[in-house]
Design a binder for these strands. Structure first.
Length: 516
RNA sequence: GCGGGAGUAGCUCAGGGGUAGAGCAUUAGCUUCCCAAGCUAAGGGUCGCGGGUUCGAAUCCCGUUUCCCGCUCCA
């Protein structure tokens, strides 16, 4: 089956079995927003718990934080989000290409510059040593003409950008007869602004309200709390701060199910280190994080690093951990060496000294930062697409049969076990109910006595329940039950009294953590 | 934004002017059988939305909207 079809089936499986629903579905949905259903939320919580414990529980020098989604607007000035991601975009209707309107105009300005320079070059050749560039610039009519046009355009462009006047930007493009480099036409759409960040009003009255942004990343909440955590926790470098939380981005297109959503959840850890040691720590965190992913057993071949050659303005090294999704290798987690960019920016904008006094070196400095940032939803998609399996089974008499099973790691599975009376009589349901009453304190359990036992097994397979406990007539005699394993479909007979220990050993999160 | 495809039951789809259908799923009961599809019954739909043509529209026409795929952007 084509991978694309597998993905489609996975998406509808998620909806049909209570993992992921399209948001606001009864009102025709809301593009690129999804809700997690009864099993989805359990799986998501388990993923978050596994990440949190691997960071905060296992590292004495990493602590947690839960900073607010609303933050002071200046934070986004300092981080560069306000200026760097506010591009005015324009489309050419013929070539269907989209451009940044400001870039088109800047390129046009550069053309005037080129023309002037060419004039000067020509003149320089002609006049030889006697050439006076300054005088030439001031007197040559063609240079003056171009210079004047350029200055006027520059002025008009700067004003339009400052005023965020999108209509004026379009008018500039039209007036200067700027054409699409591909189609060569001037058939332009309106200029539209794509804001990365969602904004809202803070303050209940219209007059007193001020604009605040919904955070586009959790990282800044960590940076602005650096001093609070460092001082109150008496933290010594190197140390880390971890946070799980929602973030919001106005993506231009948002697609591929929960891979790219407008509202999503991040698990970020910012690790503060001594300047100069950051690349060693970068390498170390690459290794740690890859190990975390691979501990889930989805196959080492399905992961790779994608090192960035083009770095963001704040980074001096960056890599992605990519997973082989049904639609190709895609980023799940980013690891960035962010230098001291963020803390320095906040130091500058807030006017507060954000530094660490290093007792060994006897001096203060702005720490460097290694960031690990993983998308919860992408991780969810990784887990579920690695687990989704369609199997053809051959029965003993030769007929074939199929099943859909989510082979989720037991530790992450939403429902750990189902307790099933083989038949709905002879006191078997009562025994099953008693077992559920006992086990529900430790595990997410289900009881089911509807339909044939085979159907009930298949239902549990579809939601990824790793263990089914079946109560049969032998139970009445010797207090044993069978455990049926989801992946192998094999069964094992055990004492009722042993169930807690047997299951706990398999589903306890520490089983995974010990592998790290 | 452009191009293409699609909206009929929870899911997969049929029906192309004349009473809204099937399979699976769901619920209740029967059956008691260790790996789906045994029996009986029930519930569930203003056929995406709005307008038009018509005695009559899920069906024809116009508009609109949502979703999916591709392109443009992505710290």
């Amino acid at each position: 089956m084509a991978q694309e079809d597998v993905f489609k089936k996975l998406v509808s499986h998620c909806k049909e079995y209570g993992y992921v629903f399209p948001s606001s579905e009864i009102y025709d949905g809301l593009s690129a927003v999804y809700d997690y259903g009864q099993y989805g939320v359990e799986l998501k919580n388990n993923i978050k718990k596994y990440w949190w414990d691997s960071m905060v529980l296992l590292h004495g020098n990493i602590v947690g934080l839960d900073s607010a989604i609303f933050m002071h607007p200046t934070i986004w000035k300092a981080s560069g989000h306000v200026d760097a991601f506010n591009d005015p975009l324009i489309d050419n209707k013929d070539s269907k290409k989209r451009y940044r309107a400001d870039v088109l105009i800047e390129e046009h300005l550069a053309k005037y510059e080129d023309k002037i320079n060419k004039e000067i070059e020509k003149a320089a050749k002609r006049f030889g040593d006697a050439f006076d560039e300054q005088q030439f610039r001031e007197t040559n009519p063609r240079v003056l003409e171009n210079q004047k046009k350029m200055d006027q355009l520059q002025e008009r462009f700067a004003k339009a950008m400052n005023d965020v006047n999108l209509e004026e930007l379009r008018q500039i493009i039209i007036d200067n007869e700027i054409v699409c480099p591909i189609s060569g036409t001037r058939n332009w759409t309106e200029v539209r602004q794509f804001n990365l960040m969602f904004s809202t009003e803070m303050g209940s009255t219209a007059e007193g309200a001020s604009k605040v942004f919904l955070r586009p990343e959790t990282a800044q909440g960590i940076f602005v709390n650096f001093l609070n955590v460092q001082k109150t926790g008496r933290m010594k470098l190197p140390f880390g701060i971890a946070q799980i939380g929602k973030a919001f981005r106005n993506e231009i297109v948002a697609r591929q199910f929960i891979f790219r959503m407008r509202e999503f959840e991040q698990m970020e850890m910012q690790f503060f280190v001594q300047p100069g040691t950051e690349l060693d720590w970068f390498a170390k965190w690459k290794e740690i994080r890859m190990k975390w992913h691979q501990s889930l057993g989805f196959g080492a071949d399905n992961y790779r690093f994608h090192d960035h050659t083009k770095l963001a303005h704040y980074a001096n090294a960056a890599t992605d951990i990519e997973y082989r999704f049904p639609f190709g290798f895609k980023e799940v987690e980013g690891i960035h060496s962010r230098t001291d960019f963020d803390l320095s920016q906040h130091q500058k904008y807030s006017g507060k000294k954000i530094q660490y006094f290093d007792p060994e070196m006897g001096e203060s400095y702005v720490p460097y930062v290694i960031e690990t940032s993983i998308g919860v939803d992408r991780m969810f998609l990784q887990v579920i697409s690695a687990s989704y399996t369609e199997e053809i089974l051959t029965k003993e008499e030769g007929s074939s049969d199929s099943r859909v099973v989510l082979k989720l790691p037991s530790v992450l599975a939403p429902v750990k076990l189902a307790v099933l009376p083989l038949v709905k009589k002879d006191g078997l349901p009562e025994i099953a109910e008693n077992i559920v009453k006992e086990l529900r304190f430790k595990f997410n359990c289900q009881y089911d006595d509807k339909d044939s036992i085979g159907r009930r097994y298949r239902r549990q397979d579809a939601i990824g329940t790793p263990y089914c406990i079946t109560i049969d007539h032998q139970t009445l005699e010797d207090e044993t039950v069978t455990i049926r394993y989801r992946d192998s479909m094999e069964q094992e007979r055990v004492k009722i009294g042993q169930l807690t220990d047997i299951i706990d050993e398999k589903v306890n999160i520490s089983t995974l953590l010990k592998k790290l």
